[in-house]
């Protein structure tokens, strides 16, 4: 029975890995996503008052930025893309009264069948990540489709069968793959870089993972490279004794 009950978790868990160490916050992925999904899956992502005083619209991917303040070190800035995490225990699916929201058994993608959605908004309430947005023109719920109409699309060349946001990211901060396969490139990346879940307490078991920013060089200046000491001891004899030595080698 095809209900908003969750499917048995399958072996394949398609999702994204987002590298916060290199995301420069350029919004390229968000705009490419908006553009693709405006002429693809379901109704166009609409915009209200687009040229007026309160412009807004439907987006499936949005880029935040945060200041993070470590003790005793300068504040850092982290750019943070936010879209659907294709949760294994997706509360957005189970709350849906109409059956419009569903999670695919074969690859774990969470989708909305727009022709069935009654626009109640409950799924958006159930999602802790703000990954669902109601389209104000169409009155149906919108969310990241993991570009399901690209990744299997036979009208696209093989190499382009990846999400629009991944394909476009100029900093290569977004990666797409099967997180159910421990040997996939994305899974290895998660293992190596300590990829993590957002809000694990919400018990959604997100498929998407985030890679943390690598530690920054702090303000401890004691830690000079080993050879500095050696460099610094080259004391000038005359004006610059070392110049002479170096030039002699050219003779």
């Amino acid at each position: 029975m095809d209900m908003t009950s969750l499917p048995q978790p399958g072996a394949k868990k398609l999702g994204l890995v987002i590298d916060l160490d290199i995301c420069v916050g350029c919004h390229a992925c968000a705009v490419a996503c908006k553009e693709w999904n405006t002429s693809a899956y379901g109704a166009p992502l609409s915009d209200q008052d687009p040229y007026g005083g309160q412009p807004e619209g439907t987006w499936l991917n949005r880029i935040h930025s945060y200041e993070v303040k470590p003790e005793g070190e300068p504040a850092q800035l982290v750019h943070f893309p936010r879209s659907c995490l294709h949760c294994e225990d997706a509360p957005c699916v189970t709350v849906c009264p109409t059956g419009a929201s569903y999670k695919r058994g074969e690859d774990g993608i969470v989708l909305v069948d727009e022709s069935m959605c009654m626009g109640c908004g409950l799924c958006a309430w159930a999602c802790p990540y703000g990954a669902r947005e109601m389209d104000m023109a169409e009155g149906v719920m919108k969310k990241c489709t993991l570009c399901v109409d690209r990744i299997y699309n036979e009208n696209l060349p093989e190499e382009d069968r990846e999400p629009a946001c991944v394909r476009t990211c100029p900093a290569k901060a977004r990666h797409f793959g099967d997180l159910g396969d421990p040997d996939s490139a994305v899974s290895r990346m998660v293992a190596e870089r300590d990829g993590y879940d957002l809000m694990p307490d919400q018990a959604t078991k997100p498929v998407n993972k985030y890679l943390p920013p690598r530690p920054k060089t702090g303000c401890d200046n004691g830690a000079a490279p080993d050879n500095l000491a050696q460099l610094a001891t080259v004391e000038p004899s005359g004006l610059l004794g070392w110049v002479d030595k170096a030039l002699a080698m050219l003779e």
Binding site: M3, T94, V95, G139
Partner: peptide
């Protein structure tokens, strides 16, 4: 509801959905 015409579909998912 934004699409009240589809409200009837809300009877379908009693197994999982409180709504």
């Amino acid at each position: 509801l934004r699409r009240p015409d589809r409200a009837w579909r809300a009877f379908s998912q009693w197994r999982s959905s409180w709504l």
